[in-house]
Amino acid sequence: MALKGNLRDFSTTQLLNLINLARKTGTLTIGTREAQARLCFKEGKLIYAMMDGQDDHLAAMLQQTGRITEEQARAIQTRADVKSDKELGLLLMNAGYVSKDDIVRSVRTCILNNVYPLFTWPDGTFRFESNVLPFEDRITIPIRLESVIMEGSRRLKEWERLQEELPSLDVALRFAERPDARLRDISLSVEEWRVVSFINPRNTARQIAQYNNMSDFQIRKIVYGLLQAGLIELVRPEGVAVSAPPGVPGQAPMAMRRPAVKRGVVERLISFFQRS
């Protein structure tokens, strides 16, 4: 089954969060009238990204990042004996033009440069095809999506979307119980660290904003990023009776209470449905 939809309804941030948490492998294609991007993932990690119409061969990437000159890039591209990017990479390393680290950094930079603008696309159709990966000859670099989501969220400018995703600031935050979510592996800004240092089920997002002199927009943006990166969860503030109005998404659930029917009644209903 393909994941299909429009960024209007399910944003790039949410898509990457889904791919990360579900550890998906495949290709995500996002398209507008003007542009089309293809992002490839392996087990929930971003491994490649390209914009249609853009030269995404290694020579072009090395040139874009200033590792080789335009002339060198042109000379490489005209050589018919170099069949794949992997082969070219080896050739350039053996000839001493670039190091392995240069190649990794260049590919990584080009991948990310293709991904970050997608966070600001308000509209565009998307389709995720499982188990479809880029051409075998390309060099792929596994990049953790938590960091990509955090950086992408920093670029969000849409107040409305943040308001929809996080309508109430009267929720507390706690660290997600995901063993693979490690904050120390993610590059956080000073403001984000400030928020992180106050994360505690006793502090609401509003209080954290006040402690740090942040506007509603700033705190929403940071909390949204941390949330979508799967690093934190929203919870009801400790010691606070919830009386939030109904219809407020994101509010903490009440503890479930036992329904006012006898156990025997439920068991009779179950056996009725199991029989029929």
Binding site: G5, D9, F10, P246, G247, V248, P253, M254, M256
Partner: peptide
């Protein structure tokens, strides 16, 4: 219809606030 997911989440939260039942 992903365009209905946001609404679904909002409905879910609303119902959870009406009664804390399974």
């Amino acid at each position: 219809r992903p365009e209905t997911f946001r609404e679904a989440r909002s409905i879910l939260d609303t119902f959870r606030s009406y009664a804390s039942v399974p």
